[in-house]
């Protein structure tokens, strides 16, 4: 929409600037805090400008194990990355196959299968967390990547979204492929996946962030510092017993934790927006 009213233009820009500032300010304060010595943060008012420590805190965090955690932040980022990628890719693979089966194949209890998947949409992880813990513990998967990833790997949301997309694919396209001699796997590989590229990219972004931000589940099943994830560690860094909270480290870790999701969004932005807005058909 474009109205020919200069006043409106100015007002909307003002609003946008205020909005941006609102989002940016906390990030900036975290950043400036992360560049100070611990002493500065406790002796002064909250700093607004970059401090003298510069990026030393970051280097220190990435290279040396953090005392309250027993692991360096690099390991934490790596663990989070494995978990988030595992969850995102796993969810996509499973959802693609599940939606494919539900939409394109006729089998007994197809409707039932769909509804079973669909109603789990309404159940958050927390509801089934105790039985899930028991299962994972029995499978000896506590303190392992598999334990972090597997329980979160099925997604009703992704299955549902892909199903909705698949249902818009004209039946004639399926039939044309059948006449062209494409079996089920070939149809999936040659036609369905290329067509749902943008949807999958959008799902990947959403699921990656979902996986990256997992808190409760990793908190429950990891005790070994080697499998700590960064989001869980953030909280742990704040509980220091009698000592002072190392705010410069906490803010630096926070910013580092924000990095990968931001990169994923920037990288996938093109597909992501396309996938949410239109479908290429």
């Amino acid at each position: 929409m474009r109205y020919n009213r200069p006043g409106l233009d100015i007002a909307s820009h003002l609003l946008l600037i205020v909005g941006c500032a609102l989002f940016f300010l906390p990030v900036w304060i975290a950043f400036s805090a992360s560049t100070h010595e611990m002493g500065d943060l406790y002796s002064n008012v909250a700093p607004v400008w970059i401090g003298e420590a510069g990026l030393d805190n970051y280097r220190h965090l990435l290279e040396d194990p953090v005392s309250s955690l027993g692991a360096d932040v690099m390991t934490l980022l790596f663990n989070s990355m494995i978990m988030a990628l595992g969850i995102a890719l796993g969810k996509i693979i499973i959802s693609v196959l599940a939606a494919y089966a539900i939409v394109f194949f006729e089998f007994r209890f197809r409707k039932l299968c769909f509804w079973l998947i669909f109603i789990t949409l309404m159940l958050p992880v927390e509801v089934r967390i105790l039985p899930t813990f028991k299962v994972v513990a029995d499978l000896n998967m506590l303190d392992s990547y598999a334990g972090l990833i597997l329980p979160l790997i099925a997604s009703a949301t992704a299955t549902f979204l892909l199903r909705q997309f698949y249902m818009t694919i004209p039946a004639e396209l399926v039939e044309a492929a059948r006449i062209d001699g494409a079996g089920p796997w070939r149809f999936l590989k040659d036609i369905l996946l290329p067509l749902s590229k943008t949807n999958i990219a959008a799902l990947f972004v959403i699921m990656f962030i979902y996986g990256w931000n997992q808190y409760l589940w990793p908190l429950l099943i990891t005790t070994d510092a080697d499998y700590l994830t960064i989001v869980v560690s953030l909280k742990r860094m704040l509980t220091t017993g009698d000592g002072l909270v190392p705010w410069q480290d906490v803010t630096a870790t926070t910013l580092l934790a924000m990095g990968p999701p931001v990169l994923v969004i920037l990288f996938m932005q093109r597909y992501f927006i396309k996938g949410l807005v239109d479908s290429e058909k």
């Binding site: 004209p170 004639e172 396209l173 039939e175 044309a176 040659d190 036609i191 290329p194 067509l195 058909k281």
Partner: peptide, 9 residues
């Protein structure tokens, strides 16, 4: 086919 059913990609 009536709507051609060409592979769009």
């Amino acid at each position: 086919f009536q709507n051609y059913a060409l592979y769009p990609h």
